[in-house]
Computed example of a mutant assay.
Amino acid sequence: MKFINLSKSRYTTKKYNPSKKISDNEIEELKEILRLSPSSINSQPWKFIFVSNEEIKNQLAEVSYFNELKIKDASHLVVFCAIDDIQSFENQINENLPEGAVGYYNQFIKPLSEQEIKSWLKHQVYLSLGYFLSACASMSIDSTPMEGIKSNEYNTILDLKNYTTLFAVAIGYREQNDPNQPKIKNKSRLQMEEIVKVL
Protein backbone atom coordinates (compact mmCIF):
# COMPACT_ATOMS: atom_id res chain seq x y z
CA MET A 1 0.00 0.00 0.00
CA LYS A 2 1.27 3.49 -0.82
CA PHE A 3 2.27 5.55 2.21
CA ILE A 4 -0.36 8.21 1.49
CA ASN A 5 -3.04 5.54 1.75
CA LEU A 6 -1.58 4.26 5.01
CA SER A 7 -1.73 7.84 6.31
CA LYS A 8 -5.39 8.07 5.44
CA SER A 9 -6.32 4.74 7.01
CA ARG A 10 -4.15 4.86 10.16
CA TYR A 11 -5.85 6.22 13.27
CA THR A 12 -5.55 6.27 17.05
CA THR A 13 -7.36 3.15 18.18
CA LYS A 14 -9.82 3.53 21.05
CA LYS A 15 -11.10 -0.05 21.41
CA TYR A 16 -8.99 -3.19 21.06
CA ASN A 17 -9.95 -6.81 20.55
CA PRO A 18 -8.44 -8.47 23.66
CA SER A 19 -8.51 -11.95 22.14
CA LYS A 20 -6.34 -11.10 19.12
CA LYS A 21 -2.58 -11.00 19.75
CA ILE A 22 0.36 -9.85 17.67
CA SER A 23 2.60 -12.74 16.59
CA ASP A 24 6.07 -13.19 18.08
CA ASN A 25 7.64 -12.73 14.64
CA GLU A 26 5.92 -9.38 14.16
CA ILE A 27 7.00 -8.24 17.63
CA GLU A 28 10.60 -9.12 16.75
CA GLU A 29 10.25 -7.11 13.56
CA LEU A 30 8.92 -4.09 15.47
CA LYS A 31 11.82 -4.34 17.92
CA GLU A 32 14.30 -4.26 15.04
CA ILE A 33 12.49 -1.32 13.44
CA LEU A 34 12.80 0.65 16.68
CA ARG A 35 16.46 -0.28 16.94
CA LEU A 36 16.94 1.22 13.48
CA SER A 37 15.13 4.48 14.30
CA PRO A 38 16.90 7.71 13.36
CA SER A 39 18.30 10.14 15.93
CA SER A 40 20.51 13.23 15.86
CA ILE A 41 24.20 12.22 15.51
CA ASN A 42 22.92 8.62 15.89
CA SER A 43 22.75 9.36 19.63
CA GLN A 44 20.14 6.65 20.43
CA PRO A 45 19.40 7.91 23.98
CA TRP A 46 16.51 5.50 24.46
CA LYS A 47 15.12 2.29 25.78
CA PHE A 48 11.99 0.55 24.44
CA ILE A 49 10.15 -1.86 26.74
CA PHE A 50 7.66 -4.31 25.22
CA VAL A 51 5.13 -5.43 27.81
CA SER A 52 2.93 -8.46 27.17
CA ASN A 53 2.92 -9.88 30.71
CA GLU A 54 -0.69 -9.34 31.77
CA GLU A 55 0.13 -8.63 35.42
CA ILE A 56 2.64 -5.89 34.57
CA LYS A 57 0.44 -4.55 31.78
CA ASN A 58 -2.47 -4.24 34.22
CA GLN A 59 -0.28 -2.45 36.78
CA LEU A 60 0.76 0.07 34.12
CA ALA A 61 -2.84 0.41 32.92
CA GLU A 62 -3.96 1.40 36.41
CA VAL A 63 -1.58 4.41 36.38
CA SER A 64 -2.57 5.54 32.89
CA TYR A 65 -5.60 7.75 33.51
CA PHE A 66 -8.23 7.33 30.77
CA ASN A 67 -6.03 4.92 28.82
CA GLU A 68 -6.54 2.03 31.26
CA LEU A 69 -8.96 -0.05 29.20
CA LYS A 70 -7.01 0.41 25.96
CA ILE A 71 -3.85 -0.91 27.62
CA LYS A 72 -5.60 -3.87 29.24
CA ASP A 73 -7.24 -4.94 25.98
CA ALA A 74 -4.28 -4.30 23.66
CA SER A 75 -1.93 -7.11 22.72
CA HIS A 76 1.18 -5.27 23.94
CA LEU A 77 2.21 -2.00 25.51
CA VAL A 78 5.46 -0.42 24.31
CA VAL A 79 7.03 2.03 26.75
CA PHE A 80 9.38 4.65 25.29
CA CYS A 81 12.07 5.85 27.69
CA ALA A 82 14.81 8.48 27.48
CA ILE A 83 18.17 8.22 29.17
CA ASP A 84 18.03 10.44 32.24
CA ASP A 85 21.66 10.40 33.36
CA ILE A 86 23.90 12.65 31.30
CA GLN A 87 27.13 10.96 32.36
CA SER A 88 25.75 7.57 31.33
CA PHE A 89 24.77 9.03 27.97
CA GLU A 90 28.22 10.54 27.45
CA ASN A 91 29.82 7.20 28.30
CA GLN A 92 27.56 5.53 25.73
CA ILE A 93 28.40 7.87 22.87
CA ASN A 94 32.12 7.86 23.69
CA GLU A 95 32.09 4.07 23.41
CA ASN A 96 29.89 3.78 20.31
CA LEU A 97 29.95 6.88 18.13
CA PRO A 98 32.62 8.18 15.74
CA GLU A 99 34.80 11.12 16.71
CA GLY A 100 32.83 13.59 14.58
CA ALA A 101 29.52 12.80 16.28
CA VAL A 102 31.05 13.03 19.75
CA GLY A 103 32.69 16.29 18.74
CA TYR A 104 29.33 17.73 17.68
CA TYR A 105 27.84 16.79 21.04
CA ASN A 106 30.77 18.27 22.96
CA GLN A 107 30.68 21.52 20.99
CA PHE A 108 26.95 22.20 20.66
CA ILE A 109 25.01 20.15 23.22
CA LYS A 110 27.25 19.63 26.25
CA PRO A 111 27.62 23.39 27.01
CA LEU A 112 23.83 23.65 27.47
CA SER A 113 22.11 23.46 30.84
CA GLU A 114 21.17 20.06 32.25
CA GLN A 115 17.51 20.77 31.49
CA GLU A 116 18.30 21.66 27.87
CA ILE A 117 20.47 18.57 27.37
CA LYS A 118 17.74 16.30 28.75
CA SER A 119 15.19 18.04 26.53
CA TRP A 120 17.41 17.32 23.50
CA LEU A 121 17.67 13.67 24.54
CA LYS A 122 13.89 13.38 24.87
CA HIS A 123 13.39 14.92 21.42
CA GLN A 124 15.33 12.01 19.92
CA VAL A 125 12.90 9.52 21.44
CA TYR A 126 9.98 11.38 19.88
CA LEU A 127 11.61 10.90 16.47
CA SER A 128 11.28 7.15 16.97
CA LEU A 129 7.56 7.46 17.72
CA GLY A 130 6.61 8.58 14.23
CA TYR A 131 8.80 5.84 12.80
CA PHE A 132 7.10 3.24 14.99
CA LEU A 133 3.51 4.31 14.30
CA SER A 134 4.17 4.22 10.56
CA ALA A 135 5.74 0.77 10.86
CA CYS A 136 2.70 -0.52 12.73
CA ALA A 137 0.38 0.84 10.05
CA SER A 138 2.45 -0.82 7.32
CA MET A 139 2.03 -4.15 9.16
CA SER A 140 -1.74 -3.69 9.68
CA ILE A 141 -1.19 -3.36 13.43
CA ASP A 142 -3.32 -0.78 15.25
CA SER A 143 -1.77 1.64 17.72
CA THR A 144 -2.55 4.24 20.37
CA PRO A 145 0.21 6.69 21.36
CA MET A 146 -0.36 8.07 24.85
CA GLU A 147 1.24 10.70 27.03
CA GLY A 148 -1.62 10.38 29.51
CA ILE A 149 0.32 8.19 31.91
CA LYS A 150 1.96 8.64 35.31
CA SER A 151 5.61 8.52 34.30
CA ASN A 152 7.03 8.24 37.80
CA GLU A 153 4.80 5.26 38.57
CA TYR A 154 5.84 3.64 35.29
CA ASN A 155 9.49 4.12 36.30
CA THR A 156 8.83 2.36 39.60
CA ILE A 157 6.86 -0.54 38.13
CA LEU A 158 9.47 -1.11 35.41
CA ASP A 159 12.36 -0.60 37.85
CA LEU A 160 14.08 1.88 35.54
CA LYS A 161 17.61 3.01 36.31
CA ASN A 162 19.17 5.97 34.47
CA TYR A 163 16.10 6.16 32.22
CA THR A 164 12.71 7.82 32.54
CA THR A 165 9.39 7.05 30.86
CA LEU A 166 8.21 9.58 28.28
CA PHE A 167 5.14 7.96 26.75
CA ALA A 168 3.69 4.60 25.79
CA VAL A 169 2.02 3.04 22.76
CA ALA A 170 -0.66 0.37 22.98
CA ILE A 171 -0.57 -1.98 19.98
CA GLY A 172 -2.90 -4.72 18.83
CA TYR A 173 -5.98 -5.10 16.69
CA ARG A 174 -9.09 -2.96 16.77
CA GLU A 175 -12.55 -4.03 17.77
CA GLN A 176 -14.61 -3.95 14.59
CA ASN A 177 -17.03 -1.46 16.17
CA ASP A 178 -14.30 0.97 17.32
CA PRO A 179 -16.02 4.33 16.67
CA ASN A 180 -12.76 6.22 16.02
CA GLN A 181 -11.77 4.42 12.81
CA PRO A 182 -11.82 6.56 9.64
CA LYS A 183 -14.53 4.54 7.91
CA ILE A 184 -16.87 5.53 10.76
CA LYS A 185 -15.47 8.89 11.84
CA ASN A 186 -13.75 11.14 9.31
CA LYS A 187 -10.24 12.30 10.13
CA SER A 188 -10.16 15.90 11.39
CA ARG A 189 -7.15 17.85 10.10
CA LEU A 190 -6.40 21.49 9.40
CA GLN A 191 -6.53 22.63 5.79
CA MET A 192 -3.32 22.33 3.78
CA GLU A 193 -2.93 26.09 3.30
CA GLU A 194 -3.07 26.62 7.06
CA ILE A 195 -0.12 24.39 7.88
CA VAL A 196 2.07 24.07 4.77
CA LYS A 197 3.96 26.97 3.23
CA VAL A 198 5.85 26.75 -0.04
CA LEU A 199 8.57 29.29 -0.83
Rank of each mutant, 00 (worst) to 15 (best):
E68K: 15
K150I: 13
L60F: 04
I83W: 06
V51K: 10
F80E: 01
I117V: 11
N106M: 10
N91I: 10
S43V: 07
P111C: 07
N58W: 09
V102D: 08
E116C: 06
S40Q: 05
N94Y: 09
N58A: 14
M139P: 02
S64K: 08
E99F: 14
Q92V: 09
K72F: 11
Q59K: 15
M146W: 00
E114L: 15
L97R: 10
N152E: 12
V51M: 12
Q87L: 14
A101P: 03
Y126W: 05
P38G: 08
V125A: 02
V51H: 07
A137H: 04
S138V: 12
S52Y: 13
I157F: 03
I71S: 04
N91S: 12
A135S: 01
P111H: 07
E62K: 15
C136Y: 00
S75Y: 04
Q107E: 13
F66H: 15
W46M: 09
S113C: 11
I93H: 01
Q92P: 09
S134Y: 06
E147T: 10
A82R: 04
Q44I: 05
I71K: 08
L97E: 10
Y154F: 04
D84M: 05
L129N: 09
H76F: 00
F108C: 08
Y131I: 08
L77R: 11
Y126S: 03
K150L: 10
L127F: 03
I141K: 01
K70G: 02
L97C: 06
Q59T: 12
M139Q: 10
K57H: 08
H123Y: 14
I41G: 06
D85T: 09
Y65G: 09
T144H: 05
W120N: 03
Y104V: 14
K110A: 14
S39H: 05
V51E: 05
I86K: 07
Y65R: 15
Q124G: 00
N96F: 13
S151F: 08
D85W: 00
V125R: 03
E55M: 12
I149N: 01
I56T: 12
S39Q: 06
Q87Y: 12
T156Y: 14
N53E: 07
S113A: 12
N155P: 02
Q92M: 14
D142E: 12
K118S: 04
D85L: 08
K150N: 15
S140G: 09
L121T: 00
Q59E: 11
N155G: 06
A74V: 01
K122E: 11
F48Q: 05
F108R: 12
E55L: 13
N96P: 07
Y105E: 04
E114S: 15
P111T: 06
Q87V: 14
Q44T: 03
P38D: 07
S75D: 06
E116M: 10
I141T: 03
N96G: 14
L121N: 00
G103E: 10
V51I: 14
D142A: 07
K47R: 11
K57N: 10
I83A: 03
S128P: 02
Y154R: 02
N96A: 13
Q92D: 14
I109D: 09
V51D: 04
S140W: 10
S140P: 02
S43A: 12
E68Y: 15
I93G: 01
Y126V: 01
I157A: 04
N67W: 05
N155Q: 11
A74I: 02
S134Q: 09
K122Q: 12
V102C: 10
C136W: 01
K47T: 02
L127V: 06
C136H: 03
C81M: 06
G130E: 05
D85A: 07
K150A: 11
E68D: 15
M146I: 04
